[in-house]
Design a protein around this nucleic acid. Structure first.
Lengths: 233, 233
DNA sequence: ACAATAGTGTCTGTTAGACACTATGCC
DNA sequence: GGCATAGTGTCTAACAGACACTATTGT
């Protein structure tokens, strides 16, 4: 039990430390995840979550590793990024005992079509063409569950919208993420109470031959931090 | 960017992988944390969260590591144990780039006084006698915040009570954890709705020269899993 | 009987959802 | 003016908190 050897740090070196990122985006009102074909063994050629080793030399912490992975492997910079948790164990990676520090990121649809790497596969989370390697299915499920849960009481889904959006659009995003319809009056009342949106002066968006909707954007204070509410919709 | 070398796993070995456990208990209606004097450098002799290296040989995953640390270092077995998150970076440990997989555990007061190791220091989370080493203050704060947040909408605080408890006792626990008083009628209505308690037949507890209170216990289904509710108290 | 707390019935203010209505753009 | 959707006013049902009341024990 007592381990007086000061070199204990070197006595347990056989743990693989990686980060994996669940990059989520909304397309056609359905949640999609960005996957990459693995270029290395194990599971070479299979679609998997973007991930990689932690680079102790360059990454200040694991969140920086996740941001670097997103930048290098997906071409995505500074999205909403949050720690999801760790996934660890002897069996999840055939190379040995491993730890994956999992993060999830939310981006607006247009960001992913414009600047992201073309080799990214954007696939609906509910209908992946092949099973994910490692325990990436569990990680993805945890990310989706987290997003759904936080959507109930926070501004999190706003990060799936673009820079500016109309209230009907935002409601559609909330509904798509949570998988249920929301009462329009309740939704707008809540958005009003939360006091996190500001109208873009004079800007409206028409979606057809009818009354255009007012455009809104997140107030600066909530662009990185979330806004929480007490009750649901 | 491409790393064809199959020995990349060995190319990044310099990451210290540990688990740390925030062991919480309620004493005198105040949240307390169990700390241990560190037996090794760095911070030898300082009070810190119980923790240790992951033992890839014996631990199936990091939660098993946390359970082992609790057992070996605190003498506590099978409490409520949940992952808190990871804390990582180049600077948090003077030995180098490190990852702490943090867990938090809840135990009943009597469990800690009876079976736990005597060298455990049980101190109020709001008034520690000395600053914690590493980033343990952040980890502790995250655990307390998580407990408070989950107490709003779950059965989590029940794990701070003993095997059997009265409703007034349980309400006091909820109030102590959340730091605010709860309406008695609302509290009992909620407990009733949640349908997670069962009366211990014929068992009551008297707290003075007045009407004794009915004893309750968690239904078996909720002894390890949490029960969630939609709204607060 | 009294003190003190356990436990419940009921009222009231608040909140979320249903519905209907008005507003505004394009044809 | 008609149509389709944006946006709002208002009613109602559900819910949480306040309060008062009854119940039950020891002294």
């Amino acid at each position: 039990m007592s381990r007086p050897d000061p070199r204990t740090a070197e006595a347990y070196p056989n743990i693989i430390c990686t980060v994996d990122v669940v990059l989520l985006v909304l397309r056609n009102n359905a949640l999609h995840v960005a996957l990459l074909k693995r270029e290395q063994m194990p599971f070479k050629g299979r679609l998997a979550l973007p991930g990689g080793y932690i680079h102790a030399q360059e990454d200040g912490d694991a969140e920086a590793s996740a941001a670097r992975v997103l930048r290098e492997k997906a071409g995505v910079s500074s999205p909403y990024l949050e720690q999801l948790g760790s996934f660890s164990g002897a069996r999840r990676d055939p190379r040995g005992w491993s730890v994956s520090l999992a993060y999830y990121a939310l981006v607006a649809p247009d960001l992913l079509s414009e600047t992201a790497h073309p080799e990214l596969a954007i696939l609906p989370v509910d209908a992946l063409p092949e099973p994910l390697p490692f325990d990436h299915a569990r990680i993805l499920a945890a990310a989706v569950e987290r997003l759904r849960a936080k959507s109930q009481y926070s501004s999190l889904p706003c990060h799936l919208a673009g820079e500016a959006f109309t209230l009907p659009e935002l409601q559609q995003i909330y509904e798509a993420v949570m998988g249920s319809t929301i009462n329009k009056v309740s939704f707008r009342r809540k958005m009003d109470e939360m006091d996190m949106l500001e109208a873009v002066p004079g800007a409206q968006r028409a979606d057809g031959p009818f009354r255009p909707a007012q455009l809104y954007r997140l107030k600066p204070a909530f662009r990185t931090r979330l806004k929480l509410i007490n009750r649901g919709f």
